[in-house]
Amino acid sequence: MIHLNGELVEEKSAKLSILNRGFQYGDALFESIRVINNQIMFWETHYFRLMSSMRILRMEIPDFFSPEKLAELIHDVVEANNYLSQAVKVKINVYRDGKGLYLPDSKHVGYIISASPISSPFFIKSNSYCEVELFKDHYLNSGLLSTLKTNNKLTQILASIFAKENGYDNCLMLNENKSVVEATNGNLFLLKNNKLKTPPLSDGCLNGIIRKQLVEIVGELDEYEIEEASISPFELQKADELFYTNAIQGIVSINKYRKKEFNTEFSTQLIGKLNARARLSD
């Protein structure tokens, strides 16, 4: 079951017009959220990112898009699918409704809320080996639009295909200034000695939910320093650790980039701190 514009409907029965602007022009955005035992993880941060993204895209925010009402709709979907005691990924898709060409004839929006089960209620250390490579065929643009979770993700799609075709587990993305911005599906962090770096939003990285949590977590640690600064490709092989983050997987350690093998100690420690912070957000 999914929520489609206010109605709970069977996924196979849900219908969108082929003229839908999300399909025709990518005039849409999405939010991916962990829900554990019907508790929405980091809901306030997700909600304000969604509202901010809609404002930036000049979408008209419906009056009922309050945090309480959207949370209620999420809970409805979780319950309708019998996921109340499970770990699930909830996805909110928001698209600009109406017709028009590049100029829409309306700022009104439609929305879809769906849910699918995930394997663990906690963020856990992945047992999968992760080798990455730089993706240099196309670049992300630095600036505000790249920080949003819009439907325009062709560069990440092509990078994912490149990784699959060449035997890598993920790719690291570059912007037009040749700075390393992020992984295909998450924010990048680089540890060297006691300094943890992550690219600034101005470089075009996603304004990630877990990125925000880790910046705050590491900022409270006396023995480590957090810095939001551009990362050069030359820094990658000099790093002690590399990892990336997203709202569903949490923290994913990178084991190898070219000839360099990385430690995973610090990223593993951070998983425990992130789980503790997630519990406090309930």
Rank of each mutant, 00 (worst) to 15 (best):
L16R: 05
D63K: 12
V78N: 00
Y25F: 15
R55D: 13
I36Y: 09
W43T: 08
R49S: 09
F48K: 13
L57A: 09
L84G: 02
N20A: 12
G26N: 13
P67N: 03
K15E: 09
F65N: 01
F48P: 13
L73M: 07
R34E: 01
S85R: 11
A71F: 00
I33V: 14
S53T: 11
D76H: 12
R34C: 04
I61V: 15
Q24G: 08
S53N: 14
F42K: 09
L16K: 02
T45D: 14
A71V: 00
A71K: 05
W43F: 15
A87K: 02
V94K: 06
S13P: 03
I36C: 07
D76I: 04
M59I: 14
K15M: 08
N20K: 02
E68T: 08
A28P: 07
S85M: 06
E60C: 06
M59N: 08
N82D: 15
P62V: 07
A71L: 07
L19P: 01
E68Y: 04
F23N: 06
V35E: 01
D76N: 13
S17Y: 00
V9P: 03
Y83D: 06
V35P: 03
S32A: 14
S66T: 15
F30K: 03
Y47K: 13
S66G: 12
I40Q: 12
V94Q: 09
F42D: 10
R58P: 03
L57R: 12
D63I: 09
R49E: 05
W43I: 11
H75Q: 08
R55F: 07
R49V: 08
M51Y: 12
Q24L: 12
N81W: 13
P67L: 01
I33C: 04
V90Y: 00
L84C: 08
V90Q: 00
A71G: 14
I40C: 13
N93R: 06
V35N: 01
F65I: 00
F42S: 14
R21D: 06
R58F: 07
E31I: 04
L70N: 01
H75Y: 09
E72G: 09
D27Q: 07
M59P: 07
P67Q: 02
R58G: 11
S52T: 09
W43Q: 13
M51R: 11
S66K: 07
N37I: 00
R55Q: 15
N20R: 05
R58T: 13
I33L: 06
K89W: 08
L84I: 05
S53Y: 03
G22I: 11
A28I: 10
S66W: 04
S17D: 03
I92V: 12
S85G: 05
L29S: 11
D76K: 15
I40R: 04
G22Q: 07
K69Q: 10
